[in-house]
């Protein structure tokens, strides 16, 4: 029966580099595949509405006659279904996440 078997591990970790990331002074390392926030190019969009139908959370609103595309970032679950569904490939995913915000606002894009 051994006791204090953890002491050696704890002592070693005193002298090692910390395993935690000193956020917000250091940033987390994002990978190429990381699913991050949605970016949208309004001038390529044809307002077909496929992204609105495929979104599982209902975060996208498309209005064809006003040429308006709206995204509620707080509802978005960054699943990437809209990126795959878009026929004109005007929705992209970045590698970083949306920064925290103070108010809940919907993002509006209107065709130029």
């Amino acid at each position: 029966m051994s006791l204090f078997s953890m002491s050696w591990v704890v002592l070693k970790s005193l002298f090692k580099v910390p395993a935690t990331v000193r956020y917000p002074f250091a940033q987390k390392h994002y990978y190429e595949n990381t699913r991050g926030k949605i970016m949208f190019e309004v001038n390529t969009c044809i307002f077909c509405g496929l992204c609105q139908r495929k979104c599982p959370a209902g975060a996208i609103m498309v209005e064809r006659k006003d040429k308006k595309w709206e995204l509620d970032r707080f509802k978005c679950i960054i699943c990437g279904a809209c990126v795959e569904a878009c026929p004109k490939k005007c929705i992209h995913m970045e590698h970083t996440h949306t920064k925290p915000a103070v108010t809940k606002e919907k993002e509006k894009h209107i065709h130029a």
């Binding site: 953890m6 591990v9 704890v10 970790s13 395993a19 990978y31 595949n33 699913r35 960054i78 990437g80």
Partner: peptide, 28 residues
């Protein structure tokens, strides 16, 4: 301390998962 070390080990697995699928917990 054992709890924290187990979760430190888990971070490496989550990093592998994020590198291959894009999300740490919900793979998608």
């Amino acid at each position: 301390s054992l709890f924290m070390h187990c979760w430190r080990l888990r971070e490496k697995i989550l990093d592998i998962i994020e590198e291959t699928t894009g999300g740490r917990v919900i793979f998608g």
